[in-house]
């Protein structure tokens, strides 16, 4: 059986165990959240040995080159020496503003001690002083070193509860990232864009939308924001005013239930989108939010003709425990 070396310690791996599970089993404290290779919280660096490709899927090339990998999906075939990420990857940051976008969504602004290259729509893991890590999407155009996040309050949620009720301006956190491919890529300025998300899935879309406009995107941009009821919508005025200054942008709030309201659709977001746009060949789609809705939309958009490489999705997977 291969072993994981961690500093001076050596841990034999059990069966098909991941590096994360082996470390946790041996009492090593490592941050993690989704345990499915998505959120980026459990990133480590390989010092010796070969990392299976699966554990580096989706990481940017410069990270791969430095041996960064996701411990939660890393099942080594041979011995591997791993270590926490160096200081260059974990950037300390200060919470500089906590505002309300709606009763259930906070806008959290964070200033990183060191600026780094981030595209709106990517996500960052926020690590609290006690080690709890959760990923949040970058909603704003990163102005120098300030990052904007939209955090929805989850009942009994540890990180979201803390950010909503306990965190204060001036509190220090650690940030890790960015990760993710859900961002605007210039070079195809006439392509129709579909931006669809539920809940705070609007966060990366809001980033992508403004980035696309800043990059001079000319093709139509259709934004669909789904919520269970009216209270789940936010940034409505900002989005409406963007549609007035940019006639190629449309905004459609979609509520799952309730009485009809002018300018708002009632129903399931996938039905509303495909009802309006049954053929999506040549489109590019950005999807974010509830994992089941993202998965199902992705499939339906693909069947409606969107190319698999033109559907960029961020499922907001929950923590695994």
């Amino acid at each position: 059986m291969p072993v994981v070396r961690w500093g001076e310690q050596t841990f034999p791996l059990h069966g098909n165990e991941t590096v994360l599970d082996a470390l946790l089993r041996n009492g090593v404290s490592v941050s993690y959240a989704c345990k499915s290779g998505s959120c980026g919280s459990c990133m480590l660096q390989a010092r010796e040995g070969t990392v299976p490709a699966r554990a580096q899927a989706g990481l940017k090339d410069s990270w791969k080159a430095q041996g960064y990998f996701l411990a939660c999906v890393c099942v080594p075939e041979a011995d591997l020496a791993a270590a926490p990420l160096g200081a260059e990857a974990r950037i300390r940051a200060t919470i500089i503003s906590l505002g309300n976008l709606s009763p259930s969504v906070k806008q959290v602004l964070v200033r990183r001690d060191v600026a780094s290259d981030i595209r709106p729509g990517q996500y960052i893991a926020i690590i609290r002083p006690d080690g709890l890590a959760r990923s949040y999407s970058v909603a704003g155009l990163p102005e120098e070193d300030v990052l904007e996040f939209h955090v929805r309050l989850i009942p009994n949620g540890r990180m979201s509860g803390w950010l909503h009720n306990d965190a204060c301006v001036g509190d220090r956190v650690t940030t890790l990232g960015p990760s993710g491919e859900c961002f605007y890529v210039p070079g195809n300025e006439d392509q129709p864009l579909l931006l669809a998300g539920t809940g705070t899935g609007l966060a990366p879309l809001w980033g992508v939308l403004r980035d696309a406009l800043r990059c001079g995107h000319r093709g139509p941009i259709h934004v669909f924001h789904g919520a269970v009821h009216q209270g789940g919508l936010y940034l409505c005025d900002e989005l409406r005013s963007l549609t007035q200054t940019h006639e190629h942008v449309t905004y459609t709030p979609v509520l799952l239930t309730g009485d009809p309201i002018p300018g708002t659709e009632i129903g399931a977001i996938d039905k509303v989108i495909l009802g309006r746009f049954p053929k999506l060949a040549g489109w590019r789609a950005y999807l974010a939010g509830d994992p089941d809705i993202v998965r199902s939309l992705k499939m339906q958009l693909f069947l409606a003709g969107a190319g698999s490489r033109d559907i960029l999705a961020d499922a907001f997977l929950h923590s695994a425990d």
Partner: peptide
């Protein structure tokens, strides 16, 4: 190959 993958996958799924 990318195009053929997408198109054939759409076909088998339906």
């Amino acid at each position: 190959v990318n195009l053929a993958v997408d198109n054939s996958y759409r076909k088998v799924l339906t």
